[in-house]
């Protein structure tokens, strides 16, 4: 470091309050661009641009479609008319959805966590300090995209299968409900991922957490069933886990149509979204 030459004490500046301004105060700039009061519509347009302009959307949805449509066609080709006596025509989509749900979860997580990971979130919240509006727009846009893609692909599998297998042996069960419920279930899982991503702010952490939420309840019951004290918990887990829920929705479990499983997910997702909203306003970015 250098030897400082004699200088006036630095404290002197802090006390004096800058008497002579060089600019002319009051000559504020006015822009020619018209002023718009922003609303949710603006946030939706912005989020729509965001989701469609990144490669991860293309990849996750592409793989999802490949799994559901490809898997659906494969299963459809392996089955016979007779199989559809007690199964809906959308059943072949079930196998693809089991894996495909992970794609939607990943996309959901990335919608929020990638902004935190890249620092984009600071730009986003500077542009829209109404954080709840940004988050609501993210949920709406993601849900619309996820539901359109998932329900659309299930519908396509159903149509293809019915054209291949609507022989006299098939029972021609109504399958419209499975399209909506199946699409809703996997899309909600994605929204849950989005909320978890917003709370954890870390892509890998949030995806891992979501895999835990989806997979653990289908693995744990095996161990919980051993002990009598945890047996009921194990049974509930087995009944309500994500994989079993999809199986029920697609009629692989006889009788039940998975209504209560969908409601449970609606509840869990709503709770996570509320939690994410609460944290959103309070935390620093």
């Amino acid at each position: 470091m250098t030897t400082p030459p004699p200088q006036p004490a630095p404290q002197a500046y802090a006390q004096q309050s800058a008497p002579n301004w060089q600019g002319a105060p009051g000559t504020s700039y006015t822009s020619p661009i018209p002023v718009t009061r922003t609303h949710l519509g603006h946030a939706l347009a912005s989020e729509w641009t965001k989701i469609k302009s990144v490669r991860s959307t293309l990849w996750t949805l592409g793989i999802f479609l490949f799994l559901v449509l490809g898997g659906g066609l494969f299963v459809s080709a392996q089955t016979e008319d007779l199989n559809y006596q007690d199964l809906p025509f959308t059943f072949p989509a079930f196998i693809g959805l089991l894996l495909g749900q992970i794609c939607l979860i990943t996309l959901g997580v990335l919608v929020t966590s990638s902004e935190y990971g890249t620092g984009m979130i600071r730009t986003t919240f500077t542009a829209s300090p109404q954080r709840y509006r940004v988050f609501a727009a993210k949920i709406l846009v993601f849900f619309a995209v996820a539901f359109a893609v998932s329900a659309g692909s299930i519908l396509l599998v159903g149509l293809l299968t019915s054209s291949m297998h609507s022989g006299p042996e098939a029972a021609d069960l109504s399958w419209g409900g499975t399209v909506l419920k199946g699409g809703l279930y996997v899309s909600l899982l994605g929204v849950l991922g989005l909320a978890v991503g917003s709370m954890l702010r870390h892509s890998a952490g949030a995806i891992t957490a979501m895999l835990g939420i989806v997979l653990l309840p289908s693995i744990l019951p095996v161990f919980l069933m051993i002990s009598r004290s945890t047996r009921t918990l194990g049974e509930k887990m087995q009944e309500y886990n994500a994989i079993n829920a999809l199986a029920k929705i697609f009629g692989a479990d006889g009788g039940s149509t998975g209504g209560s499983q969908v409601w449970l997910l609606v509840g869990v997702t709503a709770a996570a979204v509320v939690g994410a909203f609460a944290l959103l306003e309070r935390r620093d970015v």
Partner: peptide
């Protein structure tokens, strides 16, 4: 372009 576009849209900027 898209980075700026999403910012512009969020504030209703043409």
């Amino acid at each position: 372009y898209n980075h700026l576009l999403c910012l512009a849209q969020s504030n209703g900027i043409p």
